[in-house]
Computed example of a mutant assay.
Amino acid sequence: MINTIIAVNGNDIKNSDELYAELNNYDYGDDITLTVYRGNKTLNLKLKIGVWNY
């Protein structure tokens, strides 16, 4: 299933540039809520900003 991010902490996201700009407002360890479309449902996913280790 495909998830489409439509908001971060209630701020609408229309494209990837807006997503990156919004995420730059947060620091590592901050909690955020992503609002996503999944199938025919809207979900609020609670996440903690972290570091991706390769």
Rank of each mutant, 00 (worst) to 15 (best):
V8A: 01
Y20A: 09
I5N: 03
D27Q: 14
N40H: 08
D17M: 12
L45A: 01
D30F: 14
W52V: 04
L23K: 13
G50N: 10
N25L: 12
D31P: 00
K14F: 12
N3Y: 15
N25F: 11
I13K: 01
I13F: 04
W52I: 05
R38A: 04
G39H: 03
I6F: 04
Y28L: 14
Y20E: 12
L34C: 11
Y20I: 14
Y54G: 04
E22V: 07
D12S: 08
Y20G: 00
D17E: 15
R38F: 02
D27M: 09
Y28K: 12
N24T: 12
T33K: 13
L47M: 12
K41P: 00
L45S: 00
L23Q: 12
N11R: 14
K46H: 12
N11L: 09
D27V: 13
T4R: 11
G50P: 02
D17N: 15
A21E: 15
E18H: 10
L19G: 03
N24W: 01
T42M: 05
E22L: 08
T42K: 09
T42C: 03
L47W: 10
I2P: 00
D12H: 03
I2L: 06
Y37H: 10
K48D: 05
Y54E: 06
I6N: 04
D31W: 10
I32W: 09
N15Q: 06
I2Y: 07
L47E: 05
G10V: 07
L43N: 04
Y28E: 13
V8I: 15
W52P: 00
M1R: 03
A7D: 04
Y54N: 11
N24I: 00
K14T: 09
D31M: 13
L34I: 10
G39K: 10
N25G: 11
K41N: 07
E18Q: 15
A7K: 07
S16C: 01
Y26N: 08
G10C: 12
Y20M: 12
A7P: 02
D12I: 10
L23M: 15
L43W: 06
D17I: 09
N40L: 06
Y28I: 15
L19F: 15
Y37S: 06
V51Y: 12
I5C: 00
N24F: 05
D31R: 14
L43H: 05
K14Y: 14
I6P: 00
T4H: 05
A21T: 14
Y28C: 02
L47A: 13
K46F: 05
N53D: 06
E22N: 13
N53Q: 03
I5Q: 03
Y20K: 14
N9L: 13
I49T: 09
N24Y: 07
I5G: 02
G39S: 06
W52L: 10
N24V: 00
L19P: 03
A7M: 02
T35D: 07
D30W: 14
M1T: 07
L34F: 15
L47V: 09
Y28W: 00
N25C: 08
R38Q: 09
A7F: 02
T4C: 03
N15P: 03
I5R: 00
N40Y: 07
V51R: 14
N25I: 08
K46M: 03
N40V: 02
V8C: 01
D17K: 15
T4Q: 08
G39R: 11
